[in-house]
Write a protein that binds this DNA or RNA. Structure first.
Length: 589
RNA sequence: GGAGCCGUGGUGUAGCCAGGUUAACACGCCGGCCUGUCAAGCCGGAGAUCGCGGGUUCAAAUCCCGUCGGUUCCGCCA
């Protein structure tokens, strides 16, 4: 190996300012760009803090100038020089360091680089697969680099905040036990106990409850979690939770502490003041007003029930919906007035894409209504609609008729309309709590109840008496935090009574034996004086994604996987050697 | 499991629907000129058998079928 002498930096590139003029600095960094004018050479030198222009003038140092001539993109340099103010007319206002430049006196090329497979620059529209294969180059781009810096600051603030509130950061096992309910587990074969398997945690749920039984009072962890399910823009096989649990609390205690934590993080990291407490609504209210349990409250277009207006309608679709016990619900589209026909057709198409059999639109035209169903409406029905104050001239009302199945369609239409017609929302971050979820959902396929949250969620006290009689009407002490229509996290107060836990397991169709086998250790712990406790878990990736203004959590994860679960950089997943399988007593299919 | 979109020099795109010249343009790359640029400029050059396989055709980047990869969504994700 040849000796590559180089000098350590005295400053970071992106930090130089007018105040530094006159000082001698040594910089270490990468070549963003070289501009060779024959006589003078400019190099933009980049490090984690940003970039600064370095000037190589042969009259100052012939050697440095000559060396700079050899330099190419992404070479690694060590450069000594003097900071000086740029000539008045060559200040670059687009750069934080644009008022200064470094007059190079000495340059050493620490390392060369191949020409990168794509240009290292902001907003590179480069194919994501290629970026993932060369992620270490992709991360050199400022937007990805800044997202990872942002992420680190968020976790730092979370740790600081929770620590200051008496939370202990405690690690829980990654090699753990497979449990029924929930997502598909990732499974790890045991060598020491052939034929047996660990599961990677879907969340540290059970362990954090045990820590409460253990009397640690307040726990948190920034925990990696694993779920072997299909991916989305906001879902990866492995992801990170901000997980926490508290003893002797009620829902309001967790909620208000989290209000405070988010206000703190947003202030510290983004300089954004959030108004607290965040609004709260029950699950029932969310479904009624928005058709979804994660409403985007940045805009209005609240869904109303117009069943009354059409109570005696002769229009067949409305008639049969109402006779079947359904409703007619809809909303007035914001930002859309007297639209052309194709826009209205687009609404119907979107509804059908969302799975609706149809969608009715009505446009106010003076004292009448334009609608494909206008001829089926009585004068009285038209009059009722026209009396609505929220329907201005040219305004568009969209309606769907049916039962619960129309909720997601209307929710989807609301999002579509917001995307397409609504002006940019005034509020950048609109938080809302959704509380009191149903304890159970009915699983039509398996013909049994399933936990809406998880099996350890406490039913609301007032529902206990009809738990077995009317399970679907039972609500729980649960709460989800929603930001801009994205679920950031959810939690609940847990069951701390072993008898009640038993009843819930039974309703879930878990026999005593199964419950004992799968969760016996928890049930046992609950017999040793568990405190009332509850907590919440957040998707860190989603939080950072929204704070960074990105559309995918891949943009805030250093080494994400593709939709097919591949790590294009390392090549995972991959086959293993037969010997490895043999050692694990596994046979390939 | 299902539906949609994308795949053309190193990168981003055009060409594809109406099959037929040497596959075009920009950026990047290489070389030359150039002492104030910052997306430097000017001149010159190299570089793609059009993701892969099959089919139709006298002829396929283009039409058809399949497949692979990426992506978005539905199912799934307590």
């Amino acid at each position: 190996m040849e000796d590559k002498a180089w000098s350590k930096r005295t400053r970071y590139c992106g930090t130089l300012r007018r105040d530094d003029v006159g000082s001698e600095v040594t910089l270490n960094g990468w070549v963003q760009r070289r501009r060779d004018h024959g006589g003078v050479i400019f190099i933009d030198l980049r490090d984690v803090t940003g970039l600064v222009q370095v000037v190589f003038n042969p009259e100052i140092s012939a050697a440095a100038h000559a060396a700079a001539g050899e330099v190419r993109g992404e070479y690694v340099l060590s450069c000594r020089g003097v900071v000086r103010a740029r000539p008045e007319d060559s200040v670059n206002p687009r750069l934080p360091t644009g008022e200064v430049e470094v007059m190079a006196e000495e340059l050493s090329i620490i390392n060369t680089s191949l020409t990168p497979p794509f240009e290292i620059e902001e907003d590179s529209g480069v194919d994501e697969a290629l970026r993932l294969r060369y992620r270490y180059l992709d991360i050199r781009r400022p937007d990805l680099r800044d997202s990872l810096i942002l992420r680190s600051r968020v976790t730092g603030e979370v740790r600081g905040f929770l620590s200051s509130r008496g939370f202990l950061e405690i690690e829980t096992p990654v090699l753990t036990k497979s449990t029924p309910e929930g997502a598909r587990d990732f499974v790890v074969p045991s060598r020491l106990q052939p034929g047996k398997f660990y599961a990677l945690p879907q969340s540290p749920q059970l362990f954090k409850q045990l820590l409460m039984v253990a009397g640690l009072d307040r726990y948190y962890q920034i925990a990696r979690c694993f779920r072997d399910e299909d991916m989305r823009a906001d879902r990866q096989l492995e992801f990170t939770q901000i997980d926490l649990e508290m003893s002797f609390v009620e829902p309001g205690d967790v909620i208000s502490l989290m209000d405070e934590m988010f206000a703190h993080i947003f202030r510290a990291v983004l300089g954004v003041e959030l108004e607290t407490p965040f609004p709260r609504m029950t699950w029932h209210e969310a479904m009624a007003r928005y058709g979804t349990d994660r409403p985007d409250t940045r805009f209005g277009m609240e869904i109303g029930d117009l069943s009354g207006s059409f109570a005696s309608s002769g229009f067949k679709v409305f008639r049969s919906a109402l006779d079947g016990g359904g409703r007619i619900r809809g909303f007035v589209v914001e930002g859309l007035a007297a639209p052309p026909r194709r826009e209205l057709d687009g609404l119907v198409e979107e509804a059908q894409r969302l799975g609706a059999s149809g969608l009715v639109w009505m446009v106010r035209e003076g004292e009448g209504l334009k609608s494909p169903v206008a001829k089926f409406l009585s004068e009285e029905e038209v009059a009722v609609i026209l009396r609505r104050e929220d329907l201005p001239e040219g305004g568009v009302l969209v309606l769907a008729a049916g039962s619960a199945e129309i909720d997601p369609i209307l929710a989807g239409m609301r999002e579509y309309c917001a995307r397409r017609f609504a002006p940019a929302p005034a509020e950048r971050f609109s938080f809302v709590w959704v509380t009191d979820f149903p304890l159970f959902d009915w699983d039509e396929e398996e013909k049994r109840y399933k936990s809406n949250h998880h099996p350890f969620t406490s039913p609301s006290r007032e529902c206990l008496e009809y738990l077995e009689e009317r399970p679907l009407e039972v609500t729980s002490d649960s709460y989800d935090m929603v930001l801009n229509g994205i679920e950031l996290g959810g939690g609940s107060i847990r069951i701390y009574d072993p008898e009640l836990q038993d009843r819930v397991f039974r309703l879930l169709g878990l026999s005593r034996e199964e419950a004992e086998e799968k969760f016996g250790f928890l049930l046992e712990a609950l017999r040793y004086g568990p405190p009332p406790h509850g907590g919440i878990a957040y998707g860190l990736d989603r939080i950072v994604m929204l704070m960074a203004g990105r559309d995918s959590i891949r943009d805030v994860i250093a080494f994400p996987k593709t939709q097919s679960g591949a790590d294009l950089l390392s090549g995972a997943p991959d086959a293993v050697y037969p010997d490895q399988l043999k050692e694990l007593r596994l046979r390939p299919t």
